[in-house]
């Protein structure tokens, strides 16, 4: 399994070939469209992260020491970024997710989507992913240490 920073580097390289914003956004939109749909049964209110502008559904599962994320958004550009975050964080260990700084978003020039004024649910989604990691770690890993 690739580490978070290896996955981040791959994405940065993918984006490096686009110097024009139009191409970059086209790629992002395609990735939004490609995001595997979250299972309808997980598209429930308790998984909904509401932003002022767009909303995100996030579901997490813990299997064999790793966390798997499933998500969706009503806006396709938000979904593209959601897809990137899932590529990087899904399948990682709770501790690695807690420690991830996710600066690849900045490196590929999409940091503005994480600014509080955007209010697209992404900032809350990252926070929620880390909270899941913390919760799973507490539930499954600290218990076995006792």
């Amino acid at each position: 399994m690739e580490t978070i920073s290896e996955k981040e580097n791959t994405i940065v390289e993918e984006f490096e070939i686009y110097d024009d914003w139009l191409d970059k956004y086209n790629y992002l939109i395609e990735m939004g469209k490609d995001l595997p749909m979250i299972d309808e049964k997980h598209k429930v209110k308790q998984n909904l992260i509401t932003g002022c502008q767009s909303s995100v559904w996030l579901h997490a599962e813990y299997r064999d020491g790793r966390i798997y994320f499933f998500a969706d958004s009503d806006a396709v550009i938000t979904k593209g970024i959601v897809n990137l975050l899932i590529r990087v964080l899904s399948g990682q260990t709770p501790q690695a997710i807690i420690d991830a700084d996710l600066d690849f978003i900045d490196k590929i020039g999409l940091k503005e989507h994480l600014s509080p004024t955007r209010s697209n649910g992404l900032v809350s989604m990252i926070k929620q992913m880390k909270l899941y990691a913390l919760a799973f770690k507490t539930k499954y890993e600290l218990k076995t240490e006792n």
Binding site: I29, C52, Q53, T78
Partner: peptide, 21 residues
């Protein structure tokens, strides 16, 4: 098309509009 997506791209074209509620 979601208004957030449209607003994001219009911004990139140099056009300031308001999106949302």
């Amino acid at each position: 098309i979601h208004s957030y997506d449209a607003g994001t791209l219009l911004d990139k074209f140099g056009i300031a509009v308001r999106t949302g509620h």
